[in-house]
């Protein structure tokens, strides 16, 4: 990996992440206690603090993902719809104002590290869902021993290079795949990820 920020080993990053998580935990926790006791007019302010803390928390998750992407854990065959729904669920309360459409087959499996696979989608969705009030379509298809993930955001100019894109790219590359950002003729922004299978797909289980 290139870039001095990526040369930290995983143990050092884990320690830094731990040091960041504790103060964040206190802020999020105390804010929630105050919210329960607050007058209605003050709750919006406390909700804003909470949302921003959660954003920082996702950045901290991403720091760990960078370290982890260099060393992909056990890949497993995951139903495409489970992967997509878990990523959308992780962004519950964050994708407000953005309509997310899923075009995901119910009978296809994707060969990914489960945690990194979810983080890959979370980062792309978060990237294309900003600014809000647009729409995002997540499509997963399979073709010849590889998975194609295409996420299209309707807002023009969304998906500018940022940490989300870098994380997603690192995760794709760690799976031996690739990520590209395109501007399709129909408008908006398209992120296209190709993930080659790392193993043969298992035979369906024979149920007695």
């Amino acid at each position: 990996m290139e870039g001095s920020e990526l040369t930290l080993d995983r143990a050092t990053l884990a320690s830094a992440v731990h040091d960041l998580r504790n103060p964040l935990a206190v802020i999020v926790g105390m804010t929630s206690v105050l919210r329960a006791r607050a007058m209605p007019r003050d709750r919006d302010c406390l909700d804003a603090i909470n949302m921003e803390c959660n954003r920082i928390s996702r950045m901290v998750d991403n720091l760990m993902a960078v370290a982890r992407a260099a060393n992909v854990g056990a890949r497993d065959w995951i139903p495409a719809d489970e992967l997509a729904s878990a990523a959308v669920g992780r962004l519950e309360g964050i994708l407000t104002g953005t309509a997310v459409a899923l075009e995901v087959p119910s009978d296809e499996l994707v060969h990914v590290d489960p945690v990194l696979g979810e983080l890959l989608l979370v980062n792309i969705l978060e990237l294309l869902a900003w600014p809000a009030d647009g729409g995002v379509t997540l499509a997963i298809t399979r073709e010849d021993k590889r998975t194609l993930i295409q996420v299209h955001g309707t807002v023009a100019g969304a998906g500018a290079p940022c940490v989300n894109l870098m994380i997603a790219q690192k995760i794709a590359e760690a799976h031996g795949g690739s990520l590209e950002r395109l501007e399709p003729a129909g408008g908006g922004t398209l992120i296209r990820v190709v993930l080659p299978d790392g193993a043969a797909r298992p035979e369906p289980e024979v149920t007695p």
Partner: peptide, 22 residues
């Protein structure tokens, strides 16, 4: 685990109104 995941995904499709947003 992959067998488990496949059966859970199938279960989710049967018990959830919108399996994409369980």
């Amino acid at each position: 685990t992959h067998h488990l995941r496949v059966h859970v995904a199938s279960l989710r499709r049967k018990i959830e109104r919108d399996p994409a947003r369980p």
